[in-house]
């Protein structure tokens, strides 16, 4: 999911919430007259009847409905798309040719490198966009027995590797480390000898 899609999700949720809140408050105020008093005693749809019974109305409703439906479908499908770019056009490209980096392969290679260097497990590399900047995100779980210094050293090496591959800072490397995954049924078999 892209940051833009997240902004759209939040904005539409917020607006839908505002609309529902306004409708709900209007229904409550219609009964109790806390804010306004000039409400009709009954709700009449007479002005709308003429429009709804017109020949053109079903067509107009269908056109508006299809547009809204297509927007909804596109919005829904956008949630299924991958978040980051798979390739990146490099600044070495010119009129004689295009130079592209396959970010997925680079992310996979960087993940293997981090897994070899650092006491971390299950490292996966994914190219993502962070703040409109392509970033290779390496995510794994720390080995609890690790020395913290080994983690920072390995992170430095991986960052330097990616920086060396992209000297113009077109792509950077981010490392996210989570807690080791515990199996529900795992038993601690350690015995402490005194």
């Amino acid at each position: 999911m892209t940051p833009r899609l997240l902004r759209i999700d939040r904005a539409v949720t917020f607006l839908a919430g505002l609309a529902l809140t306004a409708l709900g408050l209007l229904l409550i105020d219609w009964q109790y007259h806390w804010a306004f008093r000039d409400y009709p005693t009954t709700f009449s749809t007479d002005p709308a009847d003429e429009v709804v019974t017109a020949d053109w109305f079903p067509w107009a409703l269908a056109v508006v409905g299809i547009i809204l439906g297509l927007l909804g479908l596109l919005w829904l499908l956008a949630h299924l798309r991958r978040r980051g770019p798979s390739t990146l056009r490099l600044s070495a490209s010119d009129e004689t040719g295009r130079v592209q980096a396959d970010l997925r392969s680079i992310a996979d290679a960087a993940a293997v490198r981090l897994g070899n260097l650092a006491p971390v497990t299950g490292v996966k590399g994914t190219p993502l966009t962070v703040g409109s900047h392509p970033v290779i995100v390496l995510r794994g779980c720390v080995d609890p027995a690790a020395a913290p210094a080994a983690i920072t050293d390995a992170a430095d090496v991986c960052t330097q590797d990616v920086a060396a591959a992209f000297p113009d800072h077109e792509v950077t490397c981010r490392i996210l480390l989570d807690a080791p995954q515990r199996s529900r049924f795992r038993r601690d078999t350690r015995v402490r000898v005194r």
Binding site: A16, L61, A62, G69
Partner: peptide
């Protein structure tokens, strides 16, 4: 964000409106 969970529901509402209109 939590809105990511709500968004598909709202998208389905829009699709439902299209189905009713057609």
């Amino acid at each position: 964000p939590a809105a990511v969970v709500v968004a598909p529901v709202l998208a389905l509402v829009l699709i439902a409106v299209a189905v009713v209109a057609v």
